[in-house]
Nucleic acid binder design. Structure first.
Lengths: 206, 206
DNA sequence: TAGATTGTTAATCGATTAACAATC
DNA sequence: TAGATTGTTAATCGATTAACAATC
């Protein structure tokens, strides 16, 4: 039996469901419905039920979904029922902010290594991390078996850093540099570029 | 004649085309093809031609696209042939990094006002900005006719800040808080949540 | 001219929605 | 039981791809 292929667009919504469920839980709610969840997210209830049904039946007819249970199931599906070690490359203003961000751990990620190539920064402390020399990136990441990395270096360095991350065995890269990076097909990349989002908005503005 | 409705998914790709074209231009290239552009972005050449044809014919058969010309056309379409004034709310680590980011101006955006509600921060300097009291947010934004805002406040404050931005006449909001915010339908919202992207990757990892 | 690449049409493919039987 | 909401099927809708005439 082969794993049924779930469309990427469905997978992409699961973290949003999980985030909304976590928020509901923190509000003290115990149960929700596809309709309520959909209203929070601006997604139709039919779509939410369809998406979830790709992975199993998590609800009860007439009642809805137990929030804690569904959240746990989604965490397992998204593989954040564990904590992933993450490397951060680049400690400019943005890298510094990312390193100090407190929102990773309870959602499945923990920064365990921070790199830069600036001699003035190497050896210095960022929060609880000592900045490592990016020269040692491959060895260090490999020895720690880190599989996920975040790139917060300049546009011009992004591809070179990417190549070395791939060499070090990293399988997922979150790229903050405003550029498309090339990777082998077994490596997953996601991008964050605020200007892209701003431009998607201004298109619609008068 | 009514404006032909272009699908959001097409609009969403235009900033990526523009970004790649700008990079090609900085590499000294003059002309490109839908195939070359597609290879850089991991998008099929047919899709790029189809997307662009929604807005007009920008290329020449046999030759391809003049990079500078197509970039200019895309800037006009995305309304970044001008510079938009932007307000930033929240100057924690992330807000500070955003305020200092040098990549906005040449892509159509300029931060012109920065707010926080922490008395220790109000009046202080962040880069070239003086942090304003968030209490005066509505008046200040209205008087400057700012239409675009970025929210880098905590999850718990995001909705309240949003409501006041809407009251101030803001039409586009880029939200860095990991939460879905509610806005009237005439206001466009985009979200940046790094953990959502990380979770989209870990789903695919072993 | 010969070669290359666009813009566009038609065909395919995939995603969303509507509807409802099942059932809690 | 009556009411509510799921999970699923079929229908609709929309997006992507393939193919090629037009033409630079």
């Amino acid at each position: 039996m082969q794993k049924p292929k779930v469309p990427d667009i469905v997978v992409g919504r699961l973290p949003l469901y999980l985030r909304a469920l976590s928020q509901m839980k923190s509000e003290g709610k115990r149960v929700t419905s596809s309709q309520e969840l959909g209203e929070r997210l601006g997604i139709s209830s039919a779509q939410i039920r369809k998406d979830l049904s790709q992975f199993g039946g998590f609800g009860k007819q007439g009642t809805g979904y137990n929030i804690a249970y569904l959240a746990d199931q989604l965490k397992t599906i998204l593989k954040v029922d564990r904590v992933w070690d993450v490397a951060l490359i680049g400690v400019g203003d943005l890298g510094r902010a990312v390193a100090n961000y407190g929102g990773f751990l309870h959602r499945g990620f923990r920064i365990v290594a921070v790199f830069d190539n600036d001699p003035a920064k190497i050896g210095s402390r960022i929060g609880s991390f000592i900045v490592e020399d990016a020269t040692n990136l491959v060895t260090s990441i490999r020895s720690k078996a880190i599989k996920v990395a975040m790139i917060a270096v300049s546009q011009v360095d992004a591809q070179a850093v990417t190549d070395r991350l791939v060499e070090a065995g990293v399988l997922g890269i979150l790229c903050y540099a405003p550029i498309s990076i090339a990777v082998p097909s077994h490596v997953k990349v996601q991008y964050i570029d605020p200007v892209v989002h701003l431009q998607r908005m201004t298109y619609h503005l008068p």
